[in-house]
Design a protein around this nucleic acid. Structure first.
Length: 235
DNA sequence: AAGTACAGCAACCGCTTATAA
DNA sequence: GTTATAAGCGGTTGCTGTACT
């Protein structure tokens, strides 16, 4: 029943790959292709687990890999995608031909995360909502629901709704936005997007503590539009 | 020059999902 | 429908090189 086990766990090489191992794996895959990772190390003459071979190929040996540091534009796109997809690195990596999920994950954890932390700590002096002060904003329905709560009292909410913007600088578009926040925190960026047009709004004005009654009031109310009091609302 | 701290990244671990038997 | 396994995925670890003291 079922399939054969992937590989023997004992007697296999571990740790960094040698040039010779790389060469064996690359030569084998280029001439035979990949049918089954389990059989690859055996057929290629490697003392490695199939899983390890797969990882080495995907993250390092694939000929279509793009080498070199990620560009500013790529970084910006990662931030945008991460705000929508969260830590789904493979989904994010799918938008970057030649880049691997591991590469993007590492880049996020070692660089972007820190960059954003610095940005958010400077956030109180940042008022990009002014950028949209000429906007007319129209609400078109929306829902809000508690997503999760922890024992530490951290509450995450999901808000979904539709905004229609009218702005001379931005063609009219509707958007879907989601965010999470917890008691006493600043709310993160609110992303407004449609098709290939994505932008992000920030505001320190929308930082609110969330005592239970206030939270309930929020949950009960159809739309928490107080968050957007800075914007002219066209109802 | 030596020791320590830190950053970056490759590789591993363990869980989840898809699929063959 | 159930079970076992391969493949995929995200979190984490640990090695290596570099900067700092």
């Amino acid at each position: 029943m079922g399939r054969q086990p992937c590989c023997e766990k004992s007697g296999l090489n571990r740790g960094p790959w040698t040039i010779e191992e790389d060469h064996k794996l690359m030569t084998f895959i280029l001439s035979n292709g990949i049918q089954c990772w389990r059989t690859v190390p055996k057929l290629a003459g490697l003392h490695r687990c199939g899983k390890s071979c797969r990882l080495r190929w995907i993250n390092y040996l694939r000929p279509d890999l793009k080498r070199g540091a990620l560009t500013e534009a790529e970084e910006e796109m990662i931030i945008q995608l991460h705000s929508r997809l969260g830590n789904r690195w493979s989904k994010i990596a799918a938008h970057f031909p030649g880049r691997t999920d591991n590469e993007i994950k590492n880049h996020w954890n070692t660089r972007i995360k820190k960059k954003l932390q610095v940005l958010s700590s400077n956030h109180t002096s940042h008022t990009p909502l002014q950028q949209y002060e000429d906007c007319e904003v129209k609400k078109e329905g929306g829902t809000m629901k508690p997503e999760s709560a922890t024992e530490q009292g951290e509450i995450k909410l999901e808000l979904q709704g539709t905004l229609v913007f009218r702005d001379p600088k931005i063609p009219q578009f509707d958007g879907r936005f989601n965010y999470g926040l917890h008691e006493g925190s600043n709310m993160g960026p609110v992303e407004i997007q449609k098709a290939d047009h994505t932008t992000t709004l920030f505001s320190e004005e929308i930082s609110k503590p969330l005592p239970e009654d206030f939270l309930q009031q929020w949950i009960d109310s159809p739309l928490p539009w107080d968050f957007f009091s800075d914007l002219k609302e066209d109802t």
